[in-house]
Design a protein around this nucleic acid. Structure first.
Lengths: 214, 214
DNA sequence: GATAAAGCATGACCGCTGGTCAGAAATAAG
DNA sequence: CTTATTTCTGACCAGCGGTCATGCTTTATC
């Protein structure tokens, strides 16, 4: 009989329902200040029930992080699909733009990926959600490396660059910049009279110079 | 009589003593797991006394963050003093190396700057320590901008770059990369067979290409 | 339909943490 | 020595993440 499967489906549905609600109140009030009691009230479930579906509060973060990373990956994949026959350099650029678009269009998701940055790594091979999120991130990184490779093959990217380190630098660079803008953006806008958009444009331009063949 | 000044001096000494002890146990055990009771025991003071010298636990972090930033600034300043008549590009490079050296030689301090990254900004104009740390960071940033300017003047750096955004990108880039290496370094070492040093070398090389005149 | 078994939901409860405060102790002033 | 002031103390508190004995609902068996 299909009872078992139905139960499993229902369980998954409830899990998603909890996540939906958690996302809402985490993003509205700030994930730190929301207590598990708050979430219990918001979901109209008892606190104990929450812990039936998620080992602890961290697990909730990591589960939302999975959604975030999935979204990020989707946008980066779409960016490549949109320009199937672009050269490698253009592909790298497209990936960068997609990453930026993700951070700007889904700031709460982006925040969650930052919050889980360390958590995700320390919980690898121990938490299903950590593994899943890591997997999406890895896929994105592979796309970046492939684009770099393609660029070297088609001559749009300097031949003498090592793929791995270059990809890591590009990733870290963009990640770091978005983080700085996120936290100190308003400050720099006042101080330097420069908008975040202008800085991002500069970053993309500078990345081009980095990769250009001599 | 000099009683008042002596008291003030003693107060400052005790404050530093608390910070010294806090640094020790925070860095040895991890700042998160150390409780204020732990710190009280370690300092041989009562918990209440700790709160006489620091508003709360965050204030302790921010105060240690000041020490960290001071160290960072010192190292970056020394880097410039060591090569007084280098051209702008070399100065930028020297600053980058100094920043990296700071992160590698004082990993606990570096960790603390990361932990306080957001805190420091949100507490600006409200917390003496936040302001002080921010000031040191600002000085470093100014050094970077001046080096870029000098580079444009002496022809070692592309003329068409905007100083502000370029400095921000460089800063964010290095910051982001060090963070990635810090958290996922071991992972990438396994995955890509690339050491952190090699990635850092790549980063410096790539930065050069970014700034080079055509 | 009655009964047993299994799974699920509950919320009172726990330990621990950052933070407080009334009173004790120490120091300075008269 | 007495008084006034500053400094220190640790028992105490509220709030948090997390647990678990208890009761309830659903499923399986006859």
């Amino acid at each position: 009989m299909g009872t078992a499967e139905r139960k499993l489906r229902e369980k998954e549905q409830r899990r998603q329902y909890i996540l939906d609600t958690a996302e809402q109140i985490f993003f509205k009030q700030g994930a730190d200040v929301v207590t598990m009691d708050d979430l219990a009230r918001a979901t109209e479930l008892s606190k104990g029930t929450l812990y039936l579906y998620f080992r602890n509060k961290e697990a909730l973060f990591l589960a939302i992080n999975v959604r975030a990373k999935k979204q990020m990956r989707e946008m980066m994949e779409q960016a490549l699909i949109a320009e199937p026959k672009a050269n490698g350099l253009l592909q790298v650029q497209a990936l960068g733009r997609a990453y930026i678009a993700f951070a700007m269009e889904y700031p709460d998701y982006y925040q969650m990926t930052l919050r889980c940055f360390t958590l995700e790594t320390t919980h690898l091979d121990q938490d299903r959600y950590a593994d899943e999120a890591h997997y999406h991130g890895e896929k994105c990184f592979e796309m970046l490396m492939l684009a770099l490779q393609k660029g070297q093959a088609d001559g749009s990217i300097a031949q003498d660059l090592e793929i791995g380190p270059t990809a890591l630098v590009l990733w870290g660079q963009l990640n770091g910049l978005m983080q700085v803008l996120d936290v100190k953006g308003p400050y720099f806008q006042r101080k330097l009279k420069v908008t975040a958009d202008a800085v991002i444009a500069s970053c993309l331009e500078l990345s081009l110079r980095m990769l250009n063949p001599r």
